[in-house]
């Protein structure tokens, strides 16, 4: 499974999100390859899931990957829930 975490520049916030997403995936027991990048690189990148903020999700509409929105990057409960809701079923 390939997961992208995405932010505007691909340098800071997407890396923070990647750390917490990797932690959550490990806790839940999902194996995935998580990469962080900026929004324009992500739009031409193949992936199963893209995790990003509400703010950037709009610019990724039409992407083949399923978009998962996280609003609070530091709330592990929200991240765990977003992953369980969107990913476990697959």
């Amino acid at each position: 499974m390939k997961v992208l975490t995405v932010c505007g520049l691909g340098q800071g916030t997407s890396l923070i999100l990647k750390m917490n997403v990797e932690q959550a995936l490990t806790d839940i027991g999902i194996r995935a390859d998580v990469e962080h990048m900026d929004v324009s690189t992500a739009s031409s990148m193949d992936a199963d899931y893209i995790i990003t903020s509400n703010e950037l999700a709009e610019s990724l509409q039409g992407h083949k990957a399923k978009i998962v929105i996280v609003n609070n990057y530091f709330d592990m409960d929200e991240i765990n829930e977003a992953i369980k809701e969107n990913m476990e079923a697959s």
Partner: peptide
């Protein structure tokens, strides 16, 4: 400029902003 161009996506959690640019 990153804020003006890409918006406030770096407001990562309630009350918390982490502005930055590229190395």
């Amino acid at each position: 400029q990153a804020y003006n161009k890409n918006g406030p996506y770096f407001v990562l959690a309630p009350q918390i902003a982490i502005p930055h640019a590229r190395p």
